[in-house]
């Protein structure tokens, strides 16, 4: 009984005299492997070479600063609420006079911690943030750790470095869709 017509009929006829010497088959196979020998390799030398994972890859967290170098985060706590793994915790503080160049608004996060053991890199914090402060980088992984006290990332690891700002091709879902449309 035949369910589909996708199956390929195997040729079960007797081998011809030439085929019985195996030489045509061997030559064919050797040609294929030689072609692969010179073809482009599918794997890369990973730590030295890295692949571009696309603008939507969700990696290492980052707390963005604005153009003047002030932290955008206002410690509203929406990211912590949105987080399904409860990985984010923060302590809010009020900005005092003289700190205007450090924080954009009157309230800021004095302490902002992401527990990388809990984080599932779902990106819901990024979606929840009303101030465009928290993002998951597309170009950096959270590195391997060897002890538990290396796992809780504080502000020192998360806040953006102004000398080496993080950019990506599309910041929001809408941008991303536009990008895709363009690429089509």
């Amino acid at each position: 009984m035949q369910l589909t017509n996708r199956s390929k009929k195997t040729d079960k006829s007797d081998l011809s005299v030439l085929e019985k010497t195996y030489f045509p088959g061997v030559a064919k196979g050797m040609a294929i492997t030689l072609k692969h020998f010179f073809s482009k390799k599918a794997t890369i030398r990973y730590p030295e070479e890295k692949r571009y994972l696309g603008p939507v890859f969700r990696g290492h967290h980052i707390l963005k600063r604005d153009e003047a170098g002030r932290e955008r985060c206002t410690a509203c706590g929406l990211c912590a609420v949105a987080c399904p793994a409860e990985a984010i915790s923060m302590v809010a503080a009020e900005r005092v006079k003289g700190e205007e160049h450090l924080y954009r608004e009157e309230k800021y996060a004095a302490n902002y911690e992401v527990n990388m053991l809990r984080c599932i890199f779902c990106g819901l914090c990024e979606e929840a943030c009303p101030k465009q402060a928290v993002y998951l980088r597309h170009d950096k992984f959270v590195p391997v750790f060897t002890s538990r006290d290396q796992v809780i990332y504080g502000k020192d690891q998360l806040v953006e470095d102004m000398d080496n700002r993080y950019t990506r091709d599309a910041w929001t879902k809408e941008d991303m869709q536009e990008l895709w449309e363009k690429q089509k």
Binding site: T33, H36, F37, K40, K41, T43, I44
Partner: peptide
Amino acid sequence: VIAAYIQDRVGPD
């Protein structure tokens, strides 16, 4: 290395 190249890999490096 030859095995790797034939199988589209990079091999021991």
